[in-house]
Design a protein around this nucleic acid. Structure first.
Lengths: 116, 116
DNA sequence: TTTTTATATGAATAGTTGTTCATATATTCA
DNA sequence: TGAATATATGAACAACTATTCATATAAAAA
């Protein structure tokens, strides 16, 4: 790891400054994990469904044209990331977004995409 | 795909409404691709370095404790996603963020993380 | 109680991705 | 020109991930 690096540029002042301002390793990891969850088309579609209203699993599956199983697996990922919450009504489970951040983050990305 | 789905809940009114408001497949794909780029710790670290100032490859490598090769590969990914730009000065290449959206998206995620 | 329906989940598999290693390219310096 | 330095890149490999298939669970309906 060190041996391979022969570069000697090292703007030491900048390096020091950045080092102090850089978020902790653990926070960077968590943020990357969060973005990883957004980084899948199926999950992105599910999230978009939920912008409108809460929705049950089989409606989501129909809407995004995926199997019930695939949707259920991905909802679990979203649930673990605390991006969605759910309520049960008999045998039907209704999912919804857990907070407004999701939509804000989505819109920022959309804006970035559309400017390119 | 269809045969496995026996669910018959189908709130047809909601399905129709969501269908019309849902962004196009292609846009959702692009957004997911963008988030995928954010969804890696190494790239996240590189991005954080660049919040402060432009920086050359070997300084980034030293700062985040990664090999020159790994950093270079990931800078390529960031470049393809148009998240970073670069300028050459002799044999040294200085990378910087291509726009302010990156920081906004990052901060939204940070906020979300810290509320959980 | 048996059947049907809605959802969840484990295992297997195929596809993707990040790192490393070796090497290529390009620029500077002696 | 030749050596050293900064960066880029292709190939190989290991690790991870999303889907499918089969099946489990749980609630409702018959």
């Amino acid at each position: 790891m060190e041996e391979e690096l022969k570069c000697t540029v090292k703007h030491q002042d900048i390096i020091e400054r950045v080092k102090t301002k850089m978020p902790k390793e653990e926070i960077l990891f968590d943020i990357a994990e969060l973005f990883k969850v957004f980084g899948d088309t199926t999950r992105m579609k599910i999230i978009c469904c939920l912008f409108e209203s809460e929705m049950c699993v089989c409606d989501i599956a129909e809407l995004i044209n995926a199997t019930q199983s695939a949707v259920s697996h991905q909802l679990r990922v979203l649930k673990q990331a605390k991006l969605v919450k759910y309520r049960k009504e008999g045998k039907v489970v209704y999912y919804s977004l857990s907070d407004r951040h999701v939509e804000i983050i989505f819109n920022m990305a959309l804006e970035h995409i559309q400017e390119m």
